[in-house]
Simulated scan of single mutants.
Amino acid sequence: MGCIYLAESRRAKKTGKSKRWWKILLAVVAIFVIGVGVYAFSIYNNAKHTVEEKMHQPVDSIDTAVGKKKVKDNEPLNVLLLGVDERSGDSGRSDALMVLSLDPKDDSMNLVSIPRDTRTEIVGKGYEDKINHAYAYGGTDMSINTVENLLDIELDYYVKVNMEGLSEMVDAVGGITVDNKTDWIDEGYYKKGYHYEKGEIELDGAKTMGFVRMRHFDSDFARTGRQRQVFQAIVDKGASVASVNKIDDMIDVLGNNMETNMDFSDMKNLMMNYRDTRKNVVSYQMEGEGAYITNSSGQDIYYLVVSDDEIQKVHDMIKKAKS
């Protein structure tokens, strides 16, 4: 095992009761089923077709029948949320990784964020690496198995969103407004030269991608906060009355950029039977210490090293409903 050089400790902050990006899906489905008249019926049919033909992707690592029974019996559920960074010619990595636990018995929801640099065993590879590499090595199945192994939990569903689709979704809803905490000019991956002034700013699709990717002027934790802010802004704008005429565009974007082992009936049942879980939201980001670990090639690689106590704490948060 390589030498470990402890870096500056990173401590995550609880974010409080805020909506999360998983609600993009539920918010849009809600619009589908609550609509009125022939127009709403056509939207509903379009949504059902999109989910069944484009978004529904079962995986070997999850027995969906178990999840369906839990939904029917109103039992607690665990959902893996994957925000995947996939570009042309790249196998991709999970840029955002969260476990959403829903407990309809006490109308509560836990959302645990797992930092992408978390060092853990990659199930199927037999060695430790950054958890976000699991997707690059073995796709959704390997990510599911790795998270289950890290936290000693059972996942019932997954929802995967291609982060590149954020640009299309922002344009589909007509742009968003965010509160920018750091003033900077984009000279990173996109190199567009956009100036992101501090304060309230308007973003189109292209500017959104620079906003959610930047981490060199603050931190990876701050970037995660910007991603959450963008997801919230999309949900708020997409659910507004002004966006009714944009719903078909939103459906198309979701169909092209989202995958899940939920079918349309699963989504409807979740919306109806678990909708009150949003009343009591607890958000938490897994904590650890930054470390540089020397690999077999002599390179010093940065990881977030999470203690056994912290892993147990997160496990207990997720499993509390079943204890």
Rank of each mutant, 00 (worst) to 15 (best):
F231I: 02
D103G: 13
S101V: 05
K192D: 09
D107G: 01
E187G: 00
S101D: 02
D156Y: 06
E168V: 12
L111C: 07
D171A: 12
D204C: 07
V161M: 12
L155G: 02
R228D: 13
Y189I: 13
V212M: 04
I122S: 01
V173F: 07
R228N: 14
D107S: 15
E164A: 15
E202D: 11
K198N: 07
D141M: 02
Y157L: 00
S101N: 15
L203V: 07
Y190G: 11
D220W: 08
N110C: 00
V170I: 14
S143R: 13
N145H: 07
N110A: 15
I114M: 02
Q232R: 14
A136P: 14
H195T: 13
T177H: 10
V159D: 10
G205F: 09
V147T: 07
G124R: 03
I144P: 05
R119V: 07
M109F: 11
I201R: 13
V161E: 02
M163D: 01
D129T: 00
V161C: 04
M142W: 04
S108Y: 04
R226Q: 08
T224W: 10
R226V: 02
S113W: 05
K160F: 12
I153E: 10
A136T: 12
Y137A: 09
A222Y: 02
M169I: 13
V147R: 13
G139F: 00
Y196M: 04
Q229Y: 00
P115F: 00
K125S: 07
E128V: 01
G210N: 05
E168H: 15
K198Y: 03
L151H: 11
D141G: 08
F217I: 12
S219Y: 03
Y189C: 06
M163A: 02
V170N: 10
K125R: 14
A136H: 12
A206F: 00
W184M: 04
D183Q: 08
A172M: 06
T120S: 10
I153T: 11
Y157G: 09
E164Q: 15
S219H: 10
D204R: 06
A206D: 15
Y196W: 09
D218V: 11
Y158Q: 13
L166S: 09
D103W: 10
K160W: 11
K181N: 10
D129R: 06
M109I: 03
T208N: 01
D179H: 06
M163R: 04
I131H: 06
K192L: 15
K207T: 15
S167N: 14
E168A: 15
P115N: 02
D106V: 05
G174T: 08
D186V: 00
M169G: 06
V159S: 12
L100R: 07
R119S: 05
D171I: 04
R215L: 06
Y196P: 01
Y158L: 13
I131N: 03
